Amino acid sequence: MLVRGIRGAITVSDDNVDEILNATRELLQVMQNENGFSIDDIASALFTLTSDLRSVFPAAAARSIGWDKVPLMCFQEIEVPGSLPKCIRVMLHVNTDKSQNEIKHIYLKEAQSLRTDLNR
């Protein structure tokens, strides 16, 4: 079994606790469903938020869906001129037998523009 990285991103319209938590939960659940891993398969998760989002840590959403034993960290995304605003990104490290080509990276809402080559 190997550790694979699974990328995901989603945008929100406002910087508020409920919207950030709901969007993060949606993203994580789609990532889990599309890639078929269990919580025990997750080695760790790293979250970033753009500087215009600071109401809540997205890791709180992961804990609320049962990822309470998974090591989680949150960071601020670097501010690059012209970059996508109000964006939550995640890098999951998952133990899996899947090849790199079988991994499904998930980009939802306006974040689909980040990796048009990977959109479903």
Rank of each mutant, 00 (worst) to 15 (best):
Q100T: 10
C87R: 09
L92E: 14
K86V: 08
L108C: 10
I65A: 02
N95R: 13
K86P: 03
P71H: 07
L92H: 00
Q100Y: 14
K69M: 12
S55R: 08
Q100S: 12
V90F: 10
P81S: 07
S55D: 06
S83C: 03
S64V: 05
V70H: 01
L72F: 06
S64A: 12
S55F: 01
K109Y: 06
V80F: 11
I78A: 14
V80G: 00
P71A: 03
K86R: 14
G66S: 00
S64K: 05
R89H: 15
P85L: 08
G82E: 02
D97N: 13
H93G: 08
P71Y: 01
P81C: 06
H93R: 09
K104H: 12
L84V: 09
K104P: 01
K104F: 05
R54T: 06
H105G: 05
H93M: 15
C87K: 10
A61G: 00
E102S: 02
K98W: 12
K109N: 10
V80N: 08
D68V: 03
P58R: 13
K98R: 04
V80D: 03
M91R: 13
D68E: 14
A111W: 03
K69T: 13
A61N: 04
E77M: 15
V90W: 13
K86L: 10
K98I: 04
S55K: 09
A61Y: 01
Y107Q: 11
S55V: 06
D68H: 07
Q112P: 01
K69W: 09
A60W: 13
S55N: 04
L84C: 07
P85C: 04
N101W: 08
V90A: 11
P81I: 02
N101T: 12
I88E: 09
E77R: 15
V70T: 14
L72T: 05
D68R: 02
I65S: 01
M73N: 11
D97G: 10
K109L: 07
R54V: 11
H105A: 05
C74G: 11
L53W: 04
Y107I: 00
V70N: 01
Y107C: 04
P85F: 07
E102C: 08
Q100N: 05
A61L: 00
I103A: 07
T96P: 07
K69V: 07
P81M: 08
P85D: 03
A60N: 13
N95L: 12
V56C: 07
V94G: 02
F75P: 00
E79I: 08
Q76W: 11
D68T: 05
L108V: 08
H93N: 13
P85S: 07
V56L: 06
L84R: 04
I65P: 02
E110G: 00
